[in-house]
């Protein structure tokens, strides 16, 4: 299982998503690798991913992928992350 966190720079906000997604996965007892990347590399990095975590601003730029794209509104709300990740892969 692979999850990719996408933002504009591949650091910062996607890093927060990665760290909090890893915490949520542990809490849910799910196992997955979480990678942070910038939007320009999404097609390559997410080619073998099941889930993409990102903001609404990047959905169009991410375009069509085999992964399910999940929009996170509050990056620090681990309940929101848990709910959305569990719905996607739980």
């Amino acid at each position: 299982m692979k999850i990719v966190a996408i933002c504009g720079a591949g650091i910062g906000s996607s890093g927060i998503l990665k760290v909090n997604a890893e915490r949520v996965l542990q809490r849910l007892g799910l196992s997955a690798t979480v990678v942070a990347a910038d939007v320009s590399s999404v097609q390559r990095v997410a080619a073998d991913a099941q889930v993409i975590l990102t903001s609404a601003e990047f959905v169009e730029a991410i375009g069509s992928t085999r992964a399910e794209t999940i929009v996170i509104e509050n990056y620090f709300d681990t309940d929101e992350l848990a709910r959305k990740i569990e719905a996607a892969i739980g």
Binding site: C7, G8, A9, G10, I11, G12, S13, I16, D38, V39, S55, A56, E57, F58, A61, N74, Y75, F76, D77
Partner: peptide, 23 residues
């Protein structure tokens, strides 16, 4: 420029912006 190019996604939680660019 990150916000000009990509929109206000750096506002990652209510009331908080995480301003950043590439290394």
């Amino acid at each position: 420029r990150m916000v000009d190019d990509h929109g206000p996604y750096i506002v990652i939680a209510p009331g908080l912006a995480l301003a950043h660019a590439r290394p």
